[in-house]
Amino acid sequence: MRLLKSVAIAWVAMACALTAHANPSPKPAKPASPKKTASNTTTVQGGAPYAGRPDAMAFADDLAARRGLDREWVRQAIGQARLLSQVPRLMLPPPVGTPKNWRVYRSRFIDPVRIRAGVRFWQEHREALERAEAEYGVPVEIIVGIIGVETIYGQQMGNFRVMDALATLSFDFPNAHPRAKERREFFQRELEQFLSLSNRSNIDPFEPRGSYAGAMGLGQFMPSSWVRYAVDFDGDGRIDLFKSPVDAIGSVANYFKGHNWTTGMPTHYAVQFDTARLQLDTLLAPDILPSFSAASMQAKGVVLDADGARHTGPMALVELQNGGDAPTYVAGTENFYAITRYNWSSYYAMAVIELGREVAAAR
């Protein structure tokens, strides 16, 4: 109950945290118990509303029944959400054969603008960052790296209506995606969480803005992550991941603690290869899932540095392609894998790690 109360308070804060230029939207019909609604003064940009989609309305009826929500309120909320035609295209992977390039990817996130912003963020919130590291065991560099990669420390938190984004991905996720069914079901669960929280917190679900995938705040939390991991780290009695960097810092650290971050464990080790014994296909088969002991990796042709050779937990051989040049390889630990639970990409994880290090060095 304490968690639900905190989340409800948080979502009221979210409504207040929106940018002043955000367009108000048509309000859903009031349910039996009054709900806050936005003023109906402008035309909402987007495609056709989902009120005309039988599948969306059936989902609304099922959600209302399972969650004990007012049926008409849920139908009106989902019915007034609009298809964002550009969003499904953004979810598609690049065409088969498109070369990945770690150096290009890295340059998008490790640049002077982000590093300078990271230094300011660290200086302004040093006490909260150090307290989060002490309480959750997650290094300051990782927390700083995450918030920098995600939103440039709050500068770019997204301007899509979360309700539209989640509805679009729930009912119009592209079938061409190799995991279309799985991802569509994921976004339907997120839409359910979002509407349930909006109902409990008595706010208009069309108010919050975020990414095209429905992520919100400085750390870009999805609704389910907000419920599970967001914390009131500044002690003001409410959770606000939009306007409270301190809450965002604690929440990011708590997220990693919830995903089995091990205090003191490095994220990765440098590697070289003994080409005469190298079993590259076997080593890459598990992808980024830590699956090999140090001894096993070395028996398959990986030459670890001294620290890597002493590592006692499982590791993965992580390949970062560099276009037409030779790939970069590292031995990723379980902490490297924990970073990929934030975004399932080894390139993302390395960008977070290296941004945090660059900011630390620039201080």
Rank of each mutant, 00 (worst) to 15 (best):
V330R: 13
N343S: 04
Y50I: 08
R357Y: 03
F160G: 05
G324F: 08
A306C: 01
A22L: 08
T43Y: 07
A316W: 09
E130W: 00
Y153T: 10
G79A: 09
R189K: 15
A17F: 00
L284T: 13
L92A: 02
Q123N: 14
P174G: 04
F256W: 00
A253N: 01
R126T: 08
L284A: 12
Y342D: 03
R75A: 10
V113D: 14
A294D: 06
F186K: 09
A60P: 13
P54G: 12
R131C: 03
N254P: 07
A331F: 01
N260R: 14
T328V: 15
E319L: 01
Y348P: 05
A51W: 04
G235P: 02
S39W: 11
I239T: 13
Q123D: 13
L191I: 07
P290R: 13
T37F: 02
D172Y: 03
G210A: 07
P94M: 03
E358G: 00
A77I: 01
D70W: 10
G323F: 09
L92D: 03
V113Y: 13
A60Y: 08
E72Y: 08
A134G: 06
A285N: 09
M1H: 12
S225T: 15
D70T: 04
F233I: 09
L355C: 08
A15P: 00
R228D: 11
N202A: 14
T151M: 07
L218N: 10
R341C: 09
N175P: 00
A29K: 13
L283E: 06
V359E: 02
M14R: 11
G264L: 14
A295I: 12
V104E: 09
H259V: 03
D236A: 07
M14F: 15
F194I: 05
F336P: 01
V227A: 14
E127T: 15
R209Y: 14
D234S: 05
L355R: 06
G235Y: 09
S211K: 02
K36M: 10
A128T: 06
A295F: 02
P93E: 05
W122C: 05
G137F: 05
P49R: 14
F242G: 06
G217H: 10
E192P: 00
L280I: 08
F186Y: 15
M163G: 02
E185H: 11
R179D: 04
A22Q: 10
P245L: 12
K30I: 02
R126L: 14
D305T: 06
A362F: 02
I147D: 03
Q155V: 09
E72D: 14
P26G: 07
V113W: 06
E190R: 06
G47D: 11
R200T: 12
G332D: 04
I146C: 01
F221Y: 08
I353E: 10
K36Y: 11
I203D: 04
F171M: 07
A20N: 12
E182N: 11
V231D: 01
M297N: 03
Y255Q: 09
V12T: 10
I146Q: 05
L63W: 01
I146G: 06
S293D: 04
S296D: 15
S224K: 05
G118Q: 07
Q156C: 00
D240Y: 03
P139T: 08
I78T: 04
F173M: 03
S85Y: 09
W261N: 04
T275I: 00
D287F: 12
F206K: 08
V149D: 02
